[in-house]
Write a protein that binds this DNA or RNA. Structure first.
Length: 872
RNA sequence: GGGCGCUUAGCUCAGCUGGUUUAGAGCGUCUGCCUUACAAGCAGAGGGUCUGCGGUUCGAAUCCGUAAGCGCCCACCA
């Protein structure tokens, strides 16, 4: 075995072994189920650091579940990602000189499927490098047959329930993707623009009303000017009509309190077709609505001017023209928030269009309480507020998208108007015949709605549709695996996905979709910047794995990833992970390199094994508790310290046989069982190295795996021995300190004097002697004249020194310590001399203070004595 | 504009119902070591009064109020 651990071949080997033996596969049985469904990544995406974090956490939870008696099932899959994928396909076609509009729907979909087959699943392959223990046999895709049929069935069901409707509404229009978006898909960003003051001539007068606007290019759509009836400054305009500049159209001045008196000039131009608020005014006052934009953001025929020009080019041009015409009063810098498309990053155009909507009132209602009452638990819980606020202010969900890549809306339009909704064309025809009374209708007469459904309309069914709960309700699998146990996802999709899954869960299963939601943070670079392609600050996860090993990277991710907090990722964390792997590796080399004899177990080893057994039990308990609280980084840190500090630095040093000597069988075997337990505790965090070492720790049979080994129970820890050894460790450290400070070589043996009646046990004496290389430990009443001393607890220890000690330095140390102790005592006395403290505080608290007082006093006495002894 | 959260050692963070020897961890730093498992290591050390102010209490990093800074979410006034 090499002294450096090389993960590469080892990781590949064991992943294949796990696959070959189907260890990841789950079938319903008598055990308690533990289920996770993966947040499906985009089918054509590649792995980034966010996925790494998210999937590492899921894998840790799943692996831990397997080792604690659960039947664990982690279902993987991918998302068709309607807009993102369609945009990629359109882009690729454009490279080949093909326009989407030149293709039929069928031709386009063929290209899209080709693209999906080519790039699809890369990300799932990458997850294997990470060690993800997904049940690959169950891999799903939001657009595969089963999931598609589920989506269509749910759409029809909701339509039949009257929850889905079709109508013309103001929606968020993405002029690049040429589709409507839901409110959640719009991100507002600060935009530095200008505020333009335009002159609207008052009809029949030689006066102008000034309107401030950020969007002068929309004046062609103006159908009114609005003032606040209570604004004296604009009162002179009441009942008048004004002329839209350049356009020449005469529009009325209307009055509404909506207008902010303080803002701009107090006059608002009203463009009902291109602004949400103006739309409301338009409805209220029955204003005409002129849609001046084409779908792609260029000016339409209806605009009359600038036809065909892009909306932003038009803005520049119209400002010049207005200025030339003397109709631009002034312009000033102005910062406002502009909505951008989450996917294509172009400014959203509010647009009136015919879309499909899902009513949210009922669904929001059934989804709120379970979270507020902690039936579904959020980690961290602070996201309950966010969730509540969203549900209480929810608007209907625009679910139609003017895209081809997705689930096509199952609505069929009839030749003579109207439509039917049905799961298939055939069923639609039946309905159509019934509805129209026309028995001669054929499938060819029906025209299916060309639009697709929002991607999230399939994602929200994921925990159900993966177990076929929509198409085959109450089947064995859905009954067993649903509700799933944990959901691990980012808080950025709490509305998109989490909330909607909860709605669907209660609507279709009558039960929560998951019991716990663990919100991960966002992975940022060490400077706190979001990782992005343009910044180039996002490491390639696969390269990281090549460099540090999957186990090292997993540990790097987990070392600073408390739930809900952003993690500042730094490669040095992976380095720490790799170093830990190396440490484990070398401990294994040490232990397995020992010769074993049948000699009796030495006393120091008897103490060490009893102690470590207790500490192992204690830490295992802490880890179990931390897992129930989803404090995974803390759980990892607890095992890390147990392995490195306690097992490796203390325990192994305690039991280590002298160089060249064998170890007794009892201690050896005990040590192997400790190692076995440590590997099992570590396995969820670092699956590969633990499998490798576990396989070599004992003779294992073919088909055995640490993955399915059970953690078992460690019993109640013996706190007494843990405390005793803590004391011994402090004594050993005290002696080591003396060596360090006085440059005494490790090889030189020292004597340790104990100023106490209570002697160490024979076992303890051996341990201290061994680890601090002593010639003897003796109880004395008075320490040697030339000695260095230290105090542990209330006992003073001294090491006689041959050489003359530096009296001054010794005194300085003692006096510093004395000063500290006296300060401490003063603090205690202040409390104890406070009558109200003694009266009001709990008795055990007072007793504790008394103990502190006594201890401090005895330490002070010892120190004073030492100082006096040195002083003469 | 509304809401939520954060501010503890150089960095990243714990600190649950106020009292567990005048605040803990990991990393980094400093010192001494190539000691025959590991220099990707070993041994040891230093470092903060818990953002400021006020209050409640016998007692506050912990509870309340307030100011400042930072972050997130929602709304979106042209």
């Amino acid at each position: 075995m090499d002294s450096v651990y090389s993960p590469q071949q080892i990781e590949a080997k064991w992943y294949q072994y796990w696959l070959d033996n189907k260890f990841f596969h789950s079938e319903p049985d008598g055990r308690e189920p533990y289920t996770i469904v993966i947040p499906p990544p985009n089918v054509t995406g590649v792995l980034h650091m966010g996925h790494m974090l998210n999937n590492t956490i899921q894998d840790i939870l799943v692996r831990r579940a397997r080792m604690t008696g659960k039947n664990a099932c982690w279902v993987p899959g991918t998302d068709h990602a309607s807009i993102a994928t369609e945009a990629k396909v359109v882009g690729k076609l454009a490279e080949q000189g093909i326009k989407k509009t030149d293709l039929t729907r069928e031709q386009f979909l063929e290209h899209a499927w080709d693209w999906t087959r080519e790039h699809g699943g890369i990300i799932l392959k990458q997850l294997r490098r990470l060690g993800a223990s997904c049940d690959w046999d169950r891999t799903g895709f939001t657009m595969d047959e089963q999931r598609s049929a589920s989506v269509i069935k749910v759409f029809c069901d909701l339509y039949d329930k009257g929850l889905i409707y079709r109508g013309v509404r103001m929606v968020n229009w993405d002029p690049k993707a040429l589709t409507a978006l839901s409110d959640e898909e719009v991100v507002f960003q600060e935009h530095h623009g200008k505020l333009y003051y335009l002159r609207y001539k008052v009809e029949g007068e030689d006066a102008y009303a000034i309107v401030a606007t950020t969007r002068p290019e929309t004046i062609m759509g103006d159908t009114a000017m609005c003032i606040n009836p209570r604004n004296p400054k604009t009162a002179w305009l009441k009942g008048k009509r004004v002329v839209v500049p350049l356009v020449g159209r005469v529009i009325p001045v209307i009055e509404d309190e909506y207008v902010d008196i303080e803002f701009g000039t107090g006059c608002l131009k009203v463009t009902p077709a291109h602004d949400v608020n103006d739309y409301m005014l338009g409805e209220k006052y029955n204003l005409p609505s002129i849609d001046i934009f084409n779908d792609n953001g260029t000016l339409s025929e209806a605009a009359g001017l600038y036809v065909g020009m892009d909306r932003f080019d038009c803005r520049e041009q119209i400002v010049r023209d207005l200025d030339a015409a003397g109709l631009l009063e002034k312009q000033e810098d102005y910062t406002n928030n502009v909505g951008f498309s989450e996917r294509t990053h172009v400014p959203i155009e509010p647009k009136l269009s015919m879309q499909w909507f899902l009513k949210m009132e009922h669904l929001a209602k059934i989804a709120l309480n379970p979270v507020m009452q902690d039936d579904i638990r959020f980690y961290p819980a602070k996201y309950k507020n966010t969730y509540k606020h969203w549900l209480e202010n929810i608007k209907d969900w625009c679910i139609s998208r003017q895209l081809w890549w997705g689930h096509r809306i199952p609505a069929y339009y009839l030749p003579e108007g109207g439509f039917v909704v049905a799961e298939s064309a055939q069923q639609a025809l039946e309905k159509a015949k019934k509805q129209t009374g026309n028995e001669n209708l054929s499938v060819g007469d029906l025209r299916q709605d060309p639009d697709c459904l929002d991607t999230w309309f399939s994602s929200w069914l994921w925990p159900i549709s993966l177990f076929n709960g929509i198409l085959d309700p109450g089947n064995k699998e859905i009954n067993y695996y649903y509700p799933t146990t944990d959901l691990v996802t980012g808080p950025d999709i709490i509305f998109f996905w989490v909330a909607r899954m909860i709605m669907a869960g209660y609507e279709y299963e009558g039960k929560m979709p998951f019991r716990n939601v663990y919100f991960t943070g966002i992975v940022r670079d060490k400077l706190g910047r979001k990782m992005s392609k343009s910044l180039g600050n996002s490491p390639d996860p696969i390269e990281l794995i090549d460099k540090f090993g999957a186990d090292g990277v997993r540990m790097g991710m987990m070392l600073s990833a408390p739930a809900g907090n952003d993690i500042l990722f730094d490669e040095s964390l992976c380095e720490q992970g790799r170093n830990f792997n190396n440490k484990i590796w070398n401990c294994f080399r040490l232990v397995k390199g020992w010769q074993v004899s049948d000699a009796e177990q030495p006393r120091y080893a008897a103490l060490a094994t009893r102690w470590f057994q207790a500490l192992l039990a204690k830490t295992a308990g802490q880890v179990a508790d931390l897992f129930t609280k989803y404090r995974l980084s803390e759980a990892l840190m607890a095992v890390y310290k147990l392995f490195w500090d306690e097992f490796s630095s203390w325990y192994l040093e305690m039991i280590k046989p002298q160089y060249g000597c064998p170890i007794d069988r009892t201690t050896y075997e005990q040590t192997l069982t400790f190692f076995d337990s440590l590997l099992k505790l570590l396995h969820p965090f670092m699956p590969f190295i633990t499998e490798e070492l576990w396989q070599n720790l004992y003779e294992r049979r073919q088909g055995e795996t640490i993955m399915l080994a059970q953690l078992g129970s460690f019993g109640e820890p013996d706190e007494t021995i843990i405390g005793e050894v803590e004391h011994l460790k402090a004594v050993i450290t005290g002696v080591r300190n003396i060596r360090q400070q006085r440059n005494i070589p490790q090889k030189e043996q020292l004597e340790l004097q104990v100023l106490s009646d209570e002697a160490f046990s024979a076992e303890a004496t051996e341990v201290i002697t061994k680890l601090s290389n002593l010639s003897s430990i003796v109880a004395v009443e008075q320490k040697a004249a030339n000695s260095a001393s230290f105090i542990v607890g209330v006992t003073e220890y001294a090491v006689p020194l041959d050489a003359f000690i530096n009296v001054e330095e010794e005194l300085r140390k003692l006096e510093a310590d004395l000063k500290y102790q006296e300060g401490f005592l003063a603090g205690v006395m202040k409390k104890l001399s406070n009558e109200r403290f003694v009266q009001n505080a709990k008795p055990e608290v007072v007793a504790m203070e008394r103990k502190k007082q006594a201890d401090a006093e005895s330490r002070i006495a010892a120190l004073k004595e030492s100082i006096k002894a040195l002083g003469k």
